[in-house]
């Protein structure tokens, strides 16, 4: 019965197959319209990267200039400055934020009191749900000359530091606030992986007299190593896509030399400076490099015979 039905199913023509599910297709109309207008519509506007789109011109009347804007971006000495800043911030996050996430997961995993574990987890996730504006607002005010940190410094008899306007402090502030906001949330995936490790391994280790420290080194860490390497690769793949929301809120004239990244440059020069074609070209350059990196990372992950990104 079931079998003959499925053979009948195969015999239907394409038209019949579509007609049979006409209600389902009608549901899809609005979403497809949405993706066509609001996503593919923006792809059409990407073409201005290859045109001179200036005031008074439309998408269609602006003349083609090929790779002119890309060339002028790549030849600009400031290009290397932007790439340098972008990569530096990403690498700093990879060096500090990434291991911290794993260490936190390992530490939380060592808490045997269920209620305590739950409490630490809940508290650590909280900042993830605050907006970038809130986190940056906290940073700016806690670090201001009359803020909490400087009050502490002067209480200890040290001189005040103008954190927000000093060149050397921008990167530490960026990284530390990132850790504060996202380390708890980032640890979820490792905590889940840790809970998947066979409990018998730990029991056997205890019988053999292994200390808890040894258990972490020889059971916990090797157990989550596949997850760690996948996460590492994916982060590496996203190394050029640094979020600009936060930088836009934290940087100012004095920290610009170390804080300006590709995307903030697009915002300032392309959008604020209405240099639309140039800004689009710079943005597209970043997107393409980012996609290549991401795709390569995903390929490597696939080769490692683990779950792929999508």
């Amino acid at each position: 019965m079931k079998r003959s039905e499925s053979i009948e199913e195969k015999k239907l023509t394409v038209r019949q197959k579509i007609w049979k599910n006409k209600e389902l297709y009608s549901l899809l109309l609005l979403p497809i319209l949405y993706f066509t207008i609001f996503r593919y519509g923006t792809f059409v506007w990407l073409s201005i990267a290859f045109k001179d789109f200036t005031l008074g011109k439309t998408l269609f009347t602006a003349e083609w200039v090929g790779f002119k804007h890309f060339r002028s971006f790549l030849e600009d000495p400031y290009f290397w400055n932007l790439i340098g800043n972008t990569l530096t911030l990403s690498v700093l996050l990879l060096i500090f934020s990434f291991p911290f996430t794993i260490i936190l997961a390992l530490m939380i995993n060592e808490v045997h009191n269920k209620a305590g574990k739950k409490l630490v987890q809940s508290i650590s996730y909280l900042p993830h749900f605050f907006s970038t504006v809130v986190v940056c607002g906290m940073v700016v005010n806690l670090l201001s000359t009359d803020g909490l940190i400087n009050n502490l410094l002067s209480m200890l008899g040290l001189s005040k530091i103008p954190f927000m306007t000093s060149l050397g402090w921008f990167r530490p502030i960026y990284v530390i606030s990132d850790i504060w906001q996202s380390v708890g949330w980032g640890s979820i995936i490792y905590i889940a992986a840790l809970s998947g490790i066979d409990a018998q391994l730990y029991e056997a280790a205890v019988l053999d007299g292994a200390s808890r420290w040894k258990q972490i080194l020889h059971i916990s860490i090797p157990g989550i190593l596949p997850v760690i390497s996948i996460q590492f690769l994916l982060r590496l793949g996203g190394i050029i896509n640094i979020g600009y929301e936060k930088i836009l809120l934290l940087y100012n004239g004095s920290t610009m030399p170390v804080a300006d990244v590709i995307s903030t440059y697009v915002y300032r020069r392309g959008l604020m400076g209405t240099d639309y074609s140039y800004g689009t070209a710079v943005g597209l350059f970043q997107t393409v490099i980012g996609l290549i990196l991401m795709a390569s990372a995903n390929q490597i992950v696939k080769k490692l015979d683990a779950a792929s990104l999508w």
Partner: peptide
């Protein structure tokens, strides 16, 4: 979903 055209094309649209 994967390919984001970016800030300015979004603004222009």
């Amino acid at each position: 979903t994967v390919f984001d055209a970016g800030m300015i094309p979004g603004f222009m649209l």
